[in-house]
């Protein structure tokens, strides 16, 4: 079944090259990054289709996280280009990329530990008037800031409910468990109103029941139109949940395809098991 939709997609894509941009919000072309003598990412090109869950897998050291960092501006690539929604975003600062709707989470959940869950959440929304110092301080203008904060607050509570972490709202983020942090991090990223989310190992260190919940949330969000690119170690997770899978090995793209295609590939098995099979 997935193969036929795949086929249909291909023909559709070939038929109308013009709306390629809309259909593939993220386009990565020939990215390259070396650290000293090590080539971490070597000529990597791929696309992520709108509204899909795309998995990026590969053994340790395959260059997945570095690719993420290059896309989101945490590191600058040595060569290559990244386009998002048709706009060149290579070498933009990470806050500029986030501002354009491409938001990431981190492999080790990076909570703002000495801020409460609510403060973490309230931080995220874009274009907050009160982020201008004078508006927050000058009497009179501050009322406007407060009004906006009250609006944001309702939305924050909705998202907290959605992720079922509303009971933790007053807790310091540093007191949350690993899995709860992952939920918070995703909820927070969502509040920036992104078009696309890059999740770096969202399931690492998450217990099975929470993992199921996270997956449900991701699927729900994808149905609402969000696009996901997920880095993950766990092959089964990716195979069971993603429409497309990109496999990286030693800094290169080993293959790209549907989960079934990837599963069937000798190369992939070899990469994961070290060529002994």
């Amino acid at each position: 079944m997935s193969e036929t939709t795949e086929q249909a997609d291909r023909t559709a894509a070939e038929a109308s090259n013009a709306d390629e941009r809309g259909r593939y919000p993220l386009q990565v072309r020939n990215l390259k990054k070396t650290f000293g003598g090590i080539t971490a990412v070597d000529d990597v090109s791929f696309e992520v289709e709108e509204g899909t869950l795309t998995g990026l897998i590969g053994p340790n050291g395959a260059g997945k996280s570095t690719t993420f960092n290059l896309i989101t501006g945490m590191n600058d690539p040595d060569a290559g280009a990244v386009r998002f929604n048709g706009e060149e975003i290579t070498r933009l600062a990470s806050h500029e990329i986030a501002d354009r709707g491409l938001v990431r989470t981190f492999q080790i959940a990076r909570e703002l530990e000495e801020m409460t869950v609510l403060e973490n959440m309230m931080l995220a929304p874009k274009n907050q008037r009160g982020e201008k110092l004078w508006r927050s301080v000058v009497p009179g203008l501050r009322d406007d800031v407060r009004r906006q904060e009250e609006e944001l607050l309702e939305r924050v509570w909705e998202v907290l409910d959605f992720f079922e972490i509303d009971h933790l709202a007053e807790e310091y983020a540093g007191n949350l468990s690993g899995g709860q942090r992952k939920l918070l991090e995703m909820a927070r990223a969502l509040l920036t109103d992104p078009d696309m989310l890059l999740l770096d190992e969202p399931f690492a260190g998450v217990n099975p029941s929470l993992e199921r919940r996270l997956l449900e949330h991701i699927h729900e969000l994808r149905e609402d139109g969000y696009t996901f690119l997920i880095v993950e170690h766990d092959m089964d997770l990716i195979m069971n949940n993603c429409e497309r899978v990109i496999v990286m090995h030693q800094g290169k793209i080993l293959m790209e395809g549907t989960p079934a295609e990837v599963k069937a590939s000798e190369d992939v098995i070899e990469a994961y098991l070290g060529g002994e099979v």
């Binding site: 600062a93 990431r104 981190f106 703002l112 530990e113 982020e131 990223a189």
Partner: peptide, 22 residues
């Protein structure tokens, strides 16, 4: 204020604040 919130976030982890578009 929202301004102070971003300052706090910078204190805690500047990369995170950056990745949220600040």
């Amino acid at each position: 204020s929202p301004f102070g919130r971003v300052l706090k976030a910078i204190r805690e982890d500047e990369d995170v604040a950056n990745s949220l578009g600040k």
